[in-house]
Every structure is written in structure tokens, then in C-alpha cells.
């Protein structure tokens, strides 16, 4: 998929651990880890909102789009 999660980068910038962030966001460690490693297939607006509030950043800082070479438009 062409969507990349940059959560680890933002977390490193803010010097925030996974446990700390999961407490602030209000989701489990496991789910946050899934998101960080790109294993989650979707993200709720409420989760994204909580992450942006906790890390004081924009959604674009956490999620990045890169052109997927060789894959047709609209596919993942």
C-alpha cells in the first residue's frame, strides 16, 4: 500500500514512548503497535484525532502517501 505511517518518527521527535502514547490516546498498546508497524488496515478519525492531540502534530505528519510504482490507480 502507498500509505505509510510515520508514527515512529513523530514519536522519536517528541521523545515519547509507546506506553506513554497509548495512555494519552486511550487505545491499547497492541493496537498502537499494530498502527506503528503498519499492520493496521484502517484508522478511525477519533484515534487519529487523539494521536494528533497527544503528539501536537497534523495528520499529515503521521500519515504519508508515496506513489506506488507498477500498481494501477485506485488499487492497494
Amino acid at each position: 500500500m502507498a500509505i505509510i505511517i510515520r508514527l515512529d518518527r513523530v514519536m522519536a521527535d517528541r521523545k515519547m514512548s509507546l506506553n506513554e502514547l497509548s495512555e494519552l490516546v486511550g487505545i491499547s498498546n497492541v493496537n498502537l503497535s499494530k498502527l506503528k508497524t503498519g499492520k493496521a488496515s484502517a484508522i478511525r478519525f477519533s484515534t487519529l484525532n487523539a494521536i494528533c492531540r497527544a503528539l501536537n502534530c497534523q495528520p499529515g505528519d503521521v500519515i504519508e502517501y508515496t506513489e506506488d510504482e507498477g500498481s494501477p490507480e485506485g488499487s492497494d
Binding site: I27, N31, L32, K34, L35, K39, A40, S41, A42, I43, R44, T47
Partner: peptide
């Protein structure tokens, strides 16, 4: 659907 919901964080 349940699996999709479980994979959504």
C-alpha cells in the same frame, strides 16, 4: 466484517 473491525485502530 469483524476481522476488518479488529484490524481498525
Amino acid at each position: 466484517l469483524q476481522q476488518e473491525a479488529d484490524d481498525t485502530v
